[in-house]
Simulated assay, not measured.
Amino acid sequence: MTRLLHLTVAFLFIADHTAFATPCLFESQGEGRVAAVVDARSVRLDDGREIRLTGIEPTATTKQALASLLTGRGVTLRSADDTPDRYGRQGAFIFTGEDDTSVQAKLLAKGDAIVSAEVTDKDCAAALMASEAEARHQKMGSWTDPSAIKNAESADDILAGIGRFMVVEGKVLSVRQAGAMTYLNFGRNWTRGFAVIISRRVSATFEGAGIPLKSLENRRVRVRGWVEGNAGPRIELRLLGQVELLGANEPTGVGP
């Protein structure tokens, strides 16, 4: 019970599927029929609109799964904002028929996608994370691969994925501040080991949520984000949802 409460309060308020009757049911942004799957995270409707699926990052099986779920299907789009991105794509959660489970949640539950942590609505974010967690527990889809979650101690393995979205687990050995940035160091060699970097503005967000960054020292965490860096791999934290606290004795790769 203590572990569950700690995880819930600390970061994502991860909950069971039953905790929210209708997660991610934002304002309707119209309907349409899917004419084509453009890529692993975008579809084109028959009226010409290109829709980017909010809240997920793709895996090797996402495009095929999307085609199976959506090609030729009538869909409803839901989001808090229908403003297109710089590529002209409209971000949205996609629903089919009368189903109140988003396509994103279905992909996550089968291990055919990874949570991106871009969703800031707590109920929706928790539901997405719960879907992913269930797939991890069941070792479905991408989670059948032991390397789907990287070991923070294997810096070279992480660095080989530079420019990719990754999920990494490990113990924070130290928390250091340098100028306007805070570093969560996972290796004893600060320059070559894996580290998470957090700007002063985002640090304030953590503090405001009652999570002093120093409190993460010697804690096991799971982080997700885009890998960057030269000598050592880095993931920059921009949102609270990019980090999950793990139990001290929790098996690697499982989690809540």
Rank of each mutant, 00 (worst) to 15 (best):
Ala21Leu: 09
Thr101Gln: 07
Leu159Ser: 11
Asp99Phe: 02
Thr144Trp: 00
Glu250Cys: 03
Gly208Glu: 01
Val37Gln: 06
Ala40Ser: 08
Asp100Phe: 08
Val175Lys: 11
Asn218Trp: 10
Ala21Thr: 07
Thr191Val: 15
Thr182Gly: 10
Val196Ala: 14
Ala113Gly: 04
Arg219Leu: 02
Ala180Asp: 14
Gly255Leu: 07
Glu50His: 10
Ala209Pro: 07
Gly74Gln: 06
Thr191Asn: 15
Asn151Thr: 03
Ala105His: 03
Gly187Val: 09
Asp85Trp: 00
Gln104Ala: 05
Gly141Cys: 09
Ala180Glu: 13
Arg176His: 14
Arg220Ala: 02
Leu66His: 05
Met1Ala: 14
Glu153Gly: 15
Thr59Trp: 04
Tyr87Asn: 01
Leu184Cys: 11
Leu4Thr: 12
His17Gly: 11
Gly187Leu: 08
Val34Met: 06
Lys122Ala: 14
Ile56Asn: 00
Asp156Val: 14
Gly30Tyr: 03
Gln177Val: 13
Leu12Glu: 13
Gly255Glu: 07
Leu53Tyr: 00
Gly187Pro: 05
Arg192Phe: 12
Arg78Lys: 08
Leu5Ile: 09
Gly32Lys: 09
Val196Leu: 14
Pro233Gln: 11
Val196Phe: 15
Ala126Met: 01
Glu244Val: 05
Leu7Tyr: 12
Asp85Tyr: 05
Leu159His: 13
Arg192Ile: 12
Ile56Gly: 02
Ser79Phe: 07
Val103Ala: 05
Val37Pro: 07
Arg201Gln: 12
Asn218Pro: 03
Gly141Lys: 02
Pro58Cys: 02
Gly170Glu: 01
Ser215Pro: 09
Lys110Arg: 11
Phe20Cys: 11
Arg176Leu: 15
Val103Asn: 01
Glu134Leu: 01
Val168Glu: 04
Ser199Ala: 14
Thr205Pro: 00
Val38Ile: 13
Ala40Asp: 09
Asp157Gly: 05
Leu70Met: 09
Val75Asn: 02
Leu107Tyr: 00
Thr96Asp: 06
Gly193Arg: 11
Gly74Trp: 10
Phe11Ile: 03
Glu118Pro: 00
Ala152Val: 07
Ala130Pro: 04
Gly161Ser: 11
Val75Pro: 05
Gln64Cys: 04
Leu25Val: 08
Arg41Glu: 06
Ser42Arg: 13
Leu213Cys: 12
Ala40Tyr: 11
Val243Arg: 13
Ser42Trp: 10
Pro233Cys: 11
Gly111Ile: 08
Val227Asp: 10
Ala126Asn: 11
Ser102Met: 00
Ile198Trp: 13
Val119Ile: 08
Thr120Ser: 12
Thr252Leu: 10
Leu107His: 01
Ser174Trp: 13
Ser28Glu: 06
Phe165Trp: 10
Val38Leu: 06
Val167Gln: 05
Val115Ser: 05
Val168Asn: 08
Ala178Tyr: 13
Glu207Cys: 05
Thr62Gly: 05
Gly88His: 02
Val103Gly: 00
Lys139Arg: 14
Val34Cys: 06
